[in-house]
Design a protein around this nucleic acid. Structure first.
Lengths: 349, 349
DNA sequence: CGTTGGCACTCGGTAGAATGGAGTGCTAAT
DNA sequence: ATTAGCACTCCATTCTACCGAGTGCCAACG
């Protein structure tokens, strides 16, 4: 892991070696200090055997080409989103500190419990590892087949429909029947639903009986609730870890508010992550994803696969000046371990 | 609704009428302006036919008694937690604006879907209504009886145990069997589990068969997973709405961070709410709940009951200088409507 | 040519100093 | 008991000066 290209390197404009070094130094330093960085600092840091003046003239070029910006005349330079992009694209993939490696391995060696709990805790882990807010998305089960359906009577007019999918997901639906249904009718409906639905998936709209006897009616009503399912989400689940980091990591109440507000809308988060993956990126910087409110953010994404199938993704949300090498490495490591965890889980099963 | 005493009025130290009026004015004004309030403002606002000088001498008394504090000499007064407490205890319960009443009624007239979704949306509603962060807690089903148990085979070594409770809750457990179980064995185990567990609840530790045949083993393994259940939470569910409000409403990054960090820990939130209810309060101000990190907060709580039974609570989290009348009224209204919603739901079922 | 030292200039940040004003506490008079 | 009067305090704001980091430009240099 971690020796794949960090993102799709669509290197149209490759900078000459010295410009690249300078840009790199500016970005790295700015990430470190959060301050505009000046020509003399760069000259020192980058171990270039040139004077600040030379660096300066290179920097005007870099600014003209859109990699750097000046907050105001006579301040140092700050990277633009394009600058960060270059930095990220040309990153030698960083290593996770061995202490962290141990931490992650320990974690996966010891987690128990339901998938949901594991993912929740993973999100928390990733956030602790990086000090950024973490997002774990578990892909929905739209293509999973139904293993079992159970209709359970709560009272005469209320039933609970429980559906178990082949990926282990369990979904509950409340059914309100149009007539008083007896225990026997519910039990019979349950049997028929099973016969009808097992090994289908939600995409195939199974034909339900059109008869008008109580049991058939019940079957129809239950099935319709099941198929009414989520016009929006595919049943994706979202686990957000370390949302309090938002307050540490961004400055400006307004930014914090905006980001939190986005995080509240899980559907939005899912499509954000999905969009980034669809673009073939592993990092989206500033406005690269379309989300206005997140223009101060960078988002790191790493997919999770189970048995080669897309099973979701882990994400990290930080300021554009986030610590990319560490964060990328952490995300990659966690996603890999997660993938392995679930694969292995199946193996020894 | 809304004409019950706002909290347990344990009025030991009742202030004389004028002091009360003054305190009231100070608190109200400070809530409004977030500024220390001076004697002359009070004299004006409170419609007291006395001069600022008189107000001043009353204020020194109120300060001595711990209701008010001065940020520094020659600033106005600010309420202490004790001051807020008095204010809240002597509040004429405020009315919800009729526009909001309509909004709430509309909401409850139109919500559909699973209980969880309703609660989630309710939390969001309450937050929008008040501009504070809202918490909705749904009490666990520890006392609910089991209606149905289903063991479903995923593969030879993995089964899913689905339990349906009389309150409509559905809980899923992954079971990893110690041997390769056939479909038939799983099905038989499922039957036996049903026979064994239906109409019991999780408190009664049902005796499981000690035989060593495959089916009995499976039954034992499944049951043990079920009973291993939550040493911590009672399966309470927490829905937090408007966490982004935290950023608007508190000042100081550190405070925001602390509050968000608390909100992340759902177990903690549950016990916070529970503690407050146990104290018989409907508002906890500053350090009245024991949570250090929330000393800048006030928490409003209103219980939800279904058929007279405690079914959870709604809560609001704001700064100590929150708009108590509105917030209390909104919380009361929403909790009442929620209660009615679920009761009515049962009626017309 | 690219590189560099020199230099004037810019502009944000900070530290004082001055000022204004809101609010107090005290006191003496009613 | 109330209150007008008054001296005092102290915070917030404004203004100033100024320092210094950093720039852009230019002339000189290899």
């Amino acid at each position: 892991m971690a020796r794949r290209p960090v993102t799709t390197a669509k290197s149209p404009s490759d900078l000459d070696a010295r410009k690249a070094t300078i840009l790199d130094a500016v970005v790295a330093e700015h990430i470190d200090t959060a301050q505009p960085v000046g020509s003399s600092s760069v000259a020192t840091i980058a171990h270039l055997a040139v004077s600040p003046a030379t660096v300066r003239s290179e920097m005007v070029a870099l600014e003209r080409e859109g990699y750097l910006a000046q907050p105001h005349t006579s301040a140092g330079r700050v990277p633009t989103d394009k600058g960060y992009r270059y930095f990220v694209d040309h990153l030698k993939s960083g290593a996770v500190s061995s202490a962290q490696q141990v931490q992650v391995r320990d974690f996966f060696a010891n987690v128990r419990g339901e998938v949901e709990d594991v993912l929740e805790q993973t999100s928390s882990l990733l956030s602790r590892l990086t000090n950024y807010t973490s997002v774990v998305v578990a892909a929905g089960h739209s293509h999973a087949t139904i293993l079992n359906v159970q209709l359970v009577s709560l009272d005469a007019r209320h039933q609970i429909l429980v559906t178990v999918f082949s990926d282990g997901a369990v979904v509950k639906h409340s059914v309100v029947s149009s007539f008083d249904a007896s225990f026997e009718e519910v039990a019979e409906a349950s049997r028929q639903l099973n016969a009808l639905l097992v090994s289908t998936n939600l995409e195939d709209r199974v034909q339900v009986p059109s008869r008008t006897d109580p049991v058939a009616t019940l079957v129809r009503e239950a099935a319709s609730v099941l198929f009414a399912e989520r016009p929006t989400a595919d049943g994706d689940q979202v686990f957000i870890g370390g949302s309090s980091r938002v307050a540490e990591v961004f400055d400006g109440v307004e930014t914090v508010r905006k980001v939190l507000s986005i995080l509240e809308q899980e559907l939005l988060v899912v499509s954000l992550i999905q969009d980034i993956l669809d673009q073939g990126l592993s990092v989206a910087i500033g406005s690269e994803h379309g989300y206005e409110a997140l223009s101060a953010c960078a988002v790191i994404v790493a997919p999770i696969t189970i048995d080669g199938e897309n099973a979701g993704a882990v994400g990290l949300l930080g300021p554009t000046r986030m610590k990319y090498p560490e964060a990328l490495a952490a995300a990659a490591m966690v996603s890999a371990q997660l993938t392995r965890h679930f694969d292995r889980d199946d193996d020894l099963g």
